[in-house]
């Protein structure tokens, strides 16, 4: 590294010589990049210790960091319902779910750490980035969950949406992420069943319970559509597709969600709060678009209904437990 630097600044010799070394370094990087892309195109899986371009590392780090922090922040709307869950059985399954989300966060942050290490990141910086707004988390976890039906909708539809986006990453090129995703998806399938169990009970219940469920769906619908991200293919998504980190666009995944869930939502007698929602002759769903700017700003600036409160709780927990992490050393 030191040698490389001194060569580059031309300390060791005439300009001609330094330019030679420069071009040698560039040629080597170009060769590595070419070999890397050959591996990607051949469907090879990349491990954390393999050479990878900085762009690939940063794309993955951003994705996995956000995924990990979202899992942890995702525990907050649900934990609010643990003390208020209607039965002991519901309390136990919700507790298990909260524990799973935090566990997923830990597994994902471990993968992020290995990516961040060569560029100077560690667990502490990955955890504290959420306080300073350096890392974002999914829009759905900025929202309020005022009733028990919200807990059901979160499990049924938010986890349902999350499973779709996560299974779309299962065949990605970065092996350590796909290994963790397998475990995460397996556990999410329990969350999905758990959510369905809650909403089925409410759908089978009294008029008041069914209304509570309908109100919760009305609250969550636009957030659910936003969850998959903008329609247009952004430059990071395009790059992730080039590197085979992901292979489906946001809109493809949103369509899959609508395919799977619209009929089921209707089946339990709920009305989707979008009278324009329909499927055309080609099987493509048309829907009223969520307020992109409202939700983007929420994620970008942490200005959702519950953003500040939950980030504050997270920070208080992180800082309040600092002594315990220190004592363990």
């Amino acid at each position: 590294m030191m040698d490389l630097k001194s060569n580059r600044t031309g300390v060791r010799g005439a300009h001609g010589q330094s330019a030679d070394v420069d071009s040698q370094v560039e040629t080597k990087e170009a060769e590595q990049m070419e070999a890397f892309m050959r591996r990607i195109e051949a469907g090879d899986k990349i491990e954390s210790t393999d050479w990878m371009p900085l762009e690939y590392r940063l794309l993955l780090l951003r994705l996995i960091h956000m995924h990990g922090i979202s899992e942890i922040m995702g525990a907050y709307p649900e934990k609010e319902w643990v003390p208020k869950a209607p039965t002991l059985a519901r309390k136990l399954s919700l507790l298990a779910k909260v524990q799973d989300e935090v566990g997923h966060g830990q597994l994902l942050l471990r993968v992020a750490e290995d990516l961040a290490e060569p560029i100077g990141g560690n667990r502490d910086s990955l955890m504290t980035d959420v306080f300073t707004g350096k890392v974002k988390f999914h829009n759905v976890f900025h929202m309020d969950a005022p009733t028990w039906a919200d807990a059901g909708i979160i499990g049924w539809l938010v986890d349902g949406a999350a499973i779709i986006t996560q299974t779309a990453l299962l065949d990605g090129s970065y092996a350590p992420y796909t290994r963790v995703l397998r475990r995460v998806c397996a556990e999410e399938s329990f969350h999905m069943q758990h959510g369905e169990s809650i909403i089925l009970t409410l759908a089978e219940g009294t008029k008041t319970q069914r209304q509570m469920l309908q109100d919760a769906l009305n609250r969550w619908w636009p957030s659910l559509l936003f969850f998959f991200g903008p329609k247009e293919i952004s430059s990071p998504v395009e790059k992730m597709m080039k590197y085979k980190i992901r292979q489906r666009t946001n809109e493809e995944l949103r369509q899959k969600f609508l395919n799977r869930y619209v009929p089921r939502i209707h089946a339990v007698g709920l009305t989707i709060p979008d009278s324009s929602l329909h499927r055309d002759a080609d099987g493509l769903w048309h829907y009223q678009e969520p307020d992109w700017e409202y939700f983007s700003m929420m994620v970008r600036e942490n200005v959702g209904p519950k953003s500040a409160e939950r980030i504050h709780l997270r920070q208080a927990a992180h800082e309040g437990q600092a002594w315990a992490r220190q004592v363990a050393l």
Partner: peptide, 15 residues
């Protein structure tokens, strides 16, 4: 099955 971050082996076993 994966990896984790810990201060020592006993914490690693627990986690």
């Amino acid at each position: 099955v994966g990896s984790l971050l810990a201060s020592d082996v006993s914490m690693a076993i627990l986690l």
